[in-house]
Each structure stands twice: as structure tokens, then as C-alpha cells.
Design a protein around this nucleic acid. Structure first.
Length: 587
DNA sequence: GAAAGTATGAGTTCTCGG
DNA sequence: CCGAGAACTCATACTTTC
């Protein structure tokens, strides 16, 4: 859920005013002094990084440039699994950030090794608790080795079970390649054709071989990513973040058997629960960074085509339970013609689409649809293969529907609302252009509701939420449709018209809870958070999707990654979540 | 000044035939 | 296994219209 139209992000909260003059000054003096005197310190402290970590990062960065310092901090965080949550521990434990820089990485590695080495009996116990057979668990240990984490072991058992199912099940191997419309759910845990994400080194790291070596060694620990253990030794490879071939996440409502089990790192245990969303097809390394910042939790990649008649490939990082999810009712139409039956009469046979592509923020011009109409009128029915191909290309690109003989048109705003799971005319209060933009930036309600459904049992008396980048209120609508009462909502949204829209919806739907709206994530500080926590006792859920403008392929001009003007607001999501955890721990 | 209209690819993965 | 082509993507900048 993003409102990015006018969201101009600067990084002033982590930069100093005279940051440009900072580097020569730091280079001039030596080590600690420069670091501790640096005015970058308060900014990074504010983000929740431990003081010693920041000192180390400033020293190591050499040039004192805030971006490279931030990069280093991200790496350290991933190595140490450190967030502001264990800030006090890190601060008080002198050894955790030893002054001897030469031993720094060794210590990190040691810590991680220790963390990964639970006793075997403990792991077996966990697996049995997860519902696995003792024998299955034992043979998984044999397969994966004694160092494997409980999560890896569960992965292995699951893969073995699924392999067995496919071997003896009723799957027709010949149909395995007919998954054009994605009705075959590859359990992504043992999909060998998965796309590969970068190893986590951002472009600014690529020329630093030494640093990258450390990164490769430590990144993708069992606790953070799924790792394969094939039978042969050459099947073993470095753990990396993968984008699954079919994005079914941790299981789908219509396929309950394909659930996976996961164990979250202790630091990630809720409450507060959190839920973060962004585009799945981001530039290399982006999801690695986001995952590292958010407790090293692997993203759940889901294509909303499994929930509606439109594709929407998104990644979600959250610490919600994943057992006993349920589907929002009524289940929306799953194909284009089920969604818009009245268009069937005009739909030519040669348009084989059953799903729309991703609903974006702008729609086709009338000039284009007129051109298509003119072209089709000039030819007999059916048109030549060549014309057909050209028309279909435009139809797919712009999600056009057939509204008359040889006539196509873009979806109406209320049709987009319908496909995304919003009530009709949810966005009627804003201009047509703005409706398309806000809807294109929004959640798919059914998908998000499926993930959030587990909260219903946990919070029968209602939840208190912090909604960042609220947009048109996809999270709120999802919770409302699930029948989860919102006792208090702190919503942050840049666009005034979207804020008004959410406010109207809040009143119209008779919400009893309190809705507080803020216009900028950069304004969300401890004072605001503490005020809410004092009034309401805390937050149960921190939810939001930060701007994707600099990540999406649709952006031809500024697809520059997480450091982009808009997408860098992700760091505020991280900052605010960290502060919420810290402040709630204090109370 | 707000709203609507229009031209503007790259980067990456997927597909399929050899 | 490999390579060429198809397919897809929460958009931006500028102009025109109202």
C-alpha cells in the first residue's frame, strides 16, 4: 500500500546538513574520534543501530559517506542479526562489539555458528512439535547433517514428502508443462529452476572483494534462507534468496496440503506482529537487503492471480503465524470472464486470456483503443495472424477488455476496485486519474487478508495497528472484511485525498475505534509512538508496503533500487518498526 | 491549476526449438 | 545445454484540455 505520487523522500533524517563536507574531515582525523564526533552518529542511533556498530561502520567506510556507512551497517546487521531490539544488550555487552577490529568478523561467525548449533535432541523435539514423525525427523538429520537448523530439517522432510507424493500420486507428468495460466502449484521449496537473487552485495560493494568475501560467507545462514541439500554433494550450494517459479507463498487456501513450516528467529517473534510488502520483481539485491533489515526473515512471494482474476507478483515479509489461514469470503471470481460476464458476448475466440496482468497506475489512451478498433474494422473476421498478434500484445500490456464488436477499452476504476477486493466506489471521492494511481499502488485485499486471517483468533477483542504508507487503506479494508475489529489505528499516508478517503471509509463503515492520521512517515517519532502506546497500550500490528517507484520495471527512468528517492522510504518502515519494538519493550 | 492524454524502453525472466 | 525471441513490470515527463 503505497502512495508515492507526491512522496518526495529525502534522507535528511540520516544525513547531516553539511554531509558533503564531512568526508574530508573524517579522513583527516583518525578512527574513533572521527567516528564518535561524527554528526552521523545521532542519525544512525535514531535508526536503532548500536553505537559501537556505527562507530565501526564509520571507521571502515573510510570516506565517511553516509551511504557507504549505511551499507556497512546493513551488512553488520545481517551478520549479527542485530536490530535495535537488542540494542541495550549490545550496548551493555562490551565483548559483543570488541574494539579489536581484526577479530570482528571472526567473532561474528562464531556467534552465528553457536546460534545454529542447537543440540540434536532439541531439534528433533521441535520437529515432533511441528507435527513430524520422529523417524522422518531422524532421517532428515541424516540427510542434512547435524549442523542443519530445525527449519532446514523441516524443509527437507517436506521436500521428501512432496517428492513421494509426486512419485506415487495421481500427477500426470505430461501435464506438468501445461501450466500456462499457473494452475500448477510448484512447491517452491524444491523447485530447481528458481530465479536467483543477488548475494546481497549492493552495487556499491561489488568492487570490494574483501568485504564481499565476508558477506558471502555469512549471508544466507539457515535461519535466514532456505537451503538445499540434494543427494549428491555437487547439489550443495551456497544459500541464497530465491524467487520461486510459481509464487504460491507459504501455501494457498485452495491447496491446504502444501503448507510449509517455518521457525522464526527469536528476535522476530511477535507481538508486535509486522507485515511488509513490495514488488517481487525488484532489482537484484533489493530483497536481500530488505530481508536482512527485517530480522533475516525470507520473503513470502505470492502472485495474487491465485486469489483473483489479475496477476500481482509481490513479496511479503512478516512474522505472522502461517498455520490455519483462511480465505476471505466470498471468494472473488478467478477468471476475467467470471469477473465480467457481460463482456463475454464481445470477447473474440482468439483472445485466450483468463487472467489480467498486473493492474498498474495508468491506463491506455483512447487513441490506442481507437487505433485497435480501426485496424480490426479494416480486416475480415477473424483478422490475420499478424494483426491478431499485435492486438493481443496491446491487450496484455494495457489490460484491455472487449466492450463491443472489434472494440476494446481499459478497465473502469470500479472494475479495478473489484479485482483488487475493494468495495465498489471505494475511491470515488478522488479524480479518475488519481483513482487509477492509488489503486495501482494498492494491496490485493484477498491476498493480504489471507495472510492476516490468523490474527482473528489471536485478537478476538480487536487489534491496534500502525499502518504505514496506508494509501487507500488496503490493510484496513482487509481487516474489516475479515471481521477483525480495529480498536485503534495510527495511519501514515502522504496523499491528502487518500487520507480523506480512508477517513470517510472509517466513518461510513461505522468503525468504533480511533483513527489517527499522519501525513509523513518522516514525522513519526518517539513522541508520537509513545503517545499512542500510552493511550492504547501498544501496537499489535505494524503493516505497510513502502514505495516501489524505484524498484518496479514499469519505471523506465529511475529504476535505481532501494536508494531511490521514493523507495528509500523503506528505511523508515524499518526505523519505525524498530522504535515501536523498543518503546513497547520499555513499557 | 487540476485533470486528462500521450509518448517514452530496459532489465530480467520465461519459453521453446534445436 | 543453449540461444534467440517472447513476455512482463505497484511509472515518469511532458503536453493538452478543461
Amino acid at each position: 500500500m503505497v502512495s508515492d505520487s507526491d512522496e518526495s523522500a529525502d534522507l535528511s533524517w540520516l544525513l547531516n546538513d553539511d554531509e558533503t563536507q564531512l568526508s574530508p574531515r573524517i579522513q583527516g582525523c583518525s578512527s574513533e574520534d572521527a567516528a564518535s564526533n561524527s554528526s552521523l552518529m545521532p542519525h544512525f542511533l535514531d535508526m536503532g543501530f548500536p553505537r559501537k556498530m556505527i562507530t565501526k561502520a564509520i571507521e571502515e567506510s573510510g570516506d565517511g559517506n553516509s551511504e557507504s556507512v549505511l551499507d556497512l551497517l546493513l551488512i553488520y546487521s545481517s551478520l549479527a542479526g542485530t536490530t535495535s531490539r537488542n540494542e541495550e544488550k549490545a550496548e551493555s555487552d562490551e565483548n559483543s562489539w570488541a574494539d579489536d577490529s581484526s577479530s570482528y568478523f571472526d567473532e561474528m561467525d562464531l556467534d552465528l555458528e553457536m546460534a545454529g548449533q542447537d543440540s540434536i535432541s532439541n531439534k528433533l523435539q521441535v520437529l515432533v512439535k511441528m507435527g513430524y514423525d520422529q523417524d522422518e525427523a531422524a532421517s532428515a538429520v541424516k540427510r542434512c547433517g547435524e549442523d542443519a537448523s530445525a527449519f532446514e530439517l523441516a524443509d527437507s522432510i517436506y521436500a521428501a514428502q512432496t517428492a513421494k507424493e509426486e512419485e506415487f500420486g495421481d500427477c500426470d507428468p505430461s501435464s506438468a508443462h501445461e501450466q500456462k495460466d499457473g494452475d500448477k502449484y510448484d512447491p517452491f521449496l524444491h523447485d530447481h529452476k528458481r530465479q536467483r537473487f543477488d548475494d546481497g552485495a549492493s552495487s556499491s560493494h561489488r568492487n570490494n572483494n574483501q568485504r564481499r568475501g565476508h558477506l558471502n560467507r555469512a549471508y544466507g545462514r539457515p535461519s535466514t534462507t532456505i537451503r538445499h541439500h540434494g543427494g549428491g554433494s555437487d547439489d550443495d550450494r551456497e544459500a541464497e534468496l530465491f524467487l520461486p517459479n510459481s509464487m504460491v507463498g507459504f501455501g494457498l487456501p485452495m491447496d491446504p496440503k502444501r503448507q510449509i513450516y517455518r521457525k522464526l528467529p527469536d528476535v522476530a517473534q511477535g507481538p508486535p506482529f509486522f507485515y511488509y510488502e513490495n514488488v517481487a520483481l525488484a532489482p537484484r539485491g533489493v530483497w536481500d537487503t530488505i530481508s536482512r533489515m527485517l530480522d533475516n526473515i525470507p520473503p513470502e512471494f505470492v502472485d495474487s492471480q491465485y486469489f483473483s482474476a489479475a496477476c500481482r507478483k509481490r513479496g511479503y515479509i512478516h512474522n505472522l503465524p502461517i498455520a490455519n489461514r483462511f480465505h476471505l469470503k466470498p471468494v472473488p471470481p478467478q477468471t476475467i470472464l467470471e469477473a465480467f460476464p457481460s463482456n463475454r458476448a464481445h470477447w473474440p475466440e482468439w483472445d485466450k486470456r483468463t487472467k489480467f496482468n498486473c493492474l498498474q497506475t495508468v491506463v491506455a489512451s483512447s487513441k490506442l483503443t481507437e487505433k485497435i478498433h480501426a485496424e480490426l474494422k479494416a480486416y475480415p473476421n477473424p483478422p490475420s495472424l499478424d494483426v491478431m498478434k499485435r492486438v493481443m500484445k496491446e491487450c496484455r500490456k494495457w489490460n484491455l477488455i472487449w466492450i463491443g464488436q472489434k472494440r476494446v477499452a481499459p478497465l473502469e476504476p470500479h472494475e479495478v476496485e473489484f479485482l483488487l477486493g475493494f468495495p465498489r466506489d471505494h475511491t470515488r471521492s478522488i479524480s479518475r486519474t488519481e483513482r487509477y494511481r492509488s489503486l495501482g499502488n494498492s494491496f490485493n485485499v484477498d491476498t493480504v487478508a489471507y495472510h492476516l486471517s490468523v490474527l482473528k483468533g489471536i485478537y478476538p477483542n480487536g487489534i491496534r495497528i500502525l499502518s504505514l504508507f496506508s494509501g487507500i487503506g488496503g490493510a484496513e479494508v482487509a481487516l474489516h472484511r475479515l471481521g477483525i475489529k480495529m480498536t485503534a489505528v495510527l495511519s501514515v499516508e502522504k496523499s491528502l485525498s487518500n487520507r480523506n478517503l480512508l477517513n470517510s471509509w472509517w466513518k461510513e463503515t461505522g468503525q468504533e475505534g480511533e483513527l489517527q492520521e499522519i501525513d509523513d512517515v518522516r514525522k513519526v517519532d518517539d513522541a508520537i509512538l509513545e503517545c499512542f502506546i500510552r493511550r492504547h497500550g501498544g501496537f499489535d500490528l505494524v503493516i505497510g508496503g513502502s514505495p516501489c517507484n524505484n524498484l518496479t520495471g514499469s519505471n523506465r527512468l529511475h529504476r535505481i533500487g532501494l536508494q531511490g528517492e521514493h523507495s528509500s522510504l523503506f528505511y523508515h518502515y524499518y526505523r519505525i518498526l524498530s522504535r515501536v519494538r523498543y518503546l513497547m519493550g520499555k513499557h
